[in-house]
């Protein structure tokens, strides 16, 4: 079974961490992944940096710019991850924008992911409509789970469509915003979490955007299966470098 699916069956709230590949140093990728797993993180999103990350706030933008300056490329990332399955068991997802994948060749990209043992992709600017029409067959052939986003503004009808095309989990964006750590969720956001949870979707939901500490992790996972932390972890890396992950994970749960 796909590692994402079996992980989702465990009866705990999943902690997923996003980091930008090539940041802070070009060769940190593997040690960050191994160390996060060692510290009990359940799932990792490896960010493939892009020059123009439209859906990201300043923290992830800056880490992407730095990663590209450090020389990160699609090919380089695949090389770094070549032997990752010899040491790492938890689900790995690549998160990136569509243009670099398009230039690599979508089929070729998916094939490489399968060879390495990547379990899924998150591509914010590949809309579900285009995916289901043009790319779903390729993803499925290479056993990749594609993860779609929903927001508080997504209509119920569209959530239904996204649920029908999804085959792993739904990425529930906590508020209408770009990525970036805020502190705590208001009642409006909690109502949204509740509303989605009541829809009894086929796919479980994992919450992302704006989760930075114990409190926000707890609130985000009250009605969902887990939460994704990105900007707050990048900030931790900027401040402390790699290897201090146990400190970070302890601040979350």
């Amino acid at each position: 079974m796909n590692r994402i699916k079996s992980k989702l069956q465990e009866s705990k709230k999943l902690l997923s961490i996003y980091f930008t590949a090539g940041y802070p140093q070009i060769d940190d990728t593997v040690s960050i992944i191994e160390d996060l797993e060692k510290n009990g993180v359940d799932m990792i999103e490896i960010g493939l940096p892009f020059s123009d990350p439209l859906a990201d706030g300043p923290t992830i933008q800056e880490s992407s710019t730095k990663a590209l300056k450090n020389g990160m490329t699609t090919e380089k990332l695949f090389q770094q991850l070549k032997d990752i399955r010899k040491t790492v068991k938890i689900p790995l997802i690549i998160m990136g924008y569509f243009n670099p994948m398009l230039q690599y060749g979508v089929e070729e990209f998916c094939k490489k992911c399968e060879e390495i043992g990547i379990d899924g992709l998150i591509i914010p600017d590949l809309p579900v409509d285009v995916y289901s029409e043009k790319y779903q067959a390729i993803f499925e052939k290479h056993k990749l789970i594609n993860v779609f986003l929903i927001t508080p503004q997504t209509s119920e009808e569209r959530i239904g469509f996204i649920d029908s095309v999804s085959n792993g989990f739904i990425y529930m964006v906590s508020s209408a915003s770009v990525t970036g750590a805020t502190s705590g969720f208001g009642t409006e956001t909690k109502d949204y979490f509740k509303r989605i949870s009541k829809m009894n979707l086929k796919n479980p939901q994992i919450v992302g955007f704006g989760i930075s500490d114990k409190q926000s992790f707890k609130e985000a996972t009250e009605y969902s299966n887990g939460a994704i932390i990105g900007s707050a972890y990048i900030k931790h890396l900027t401040k402390n470098g790699v290897g201090k992950n146990s400190n970070f994970v302890k601040t979350i749960r």
Binding site: A55, P124, P127, V130, F148, I150, T154, S155, V173, V178
Partner: peptide
Amino acid sequence: GGAYIPEMLYP
């Protein structure tokens, strides 16, 4: 052409 946009912009 087309619309390659993040879901946040969809509505």
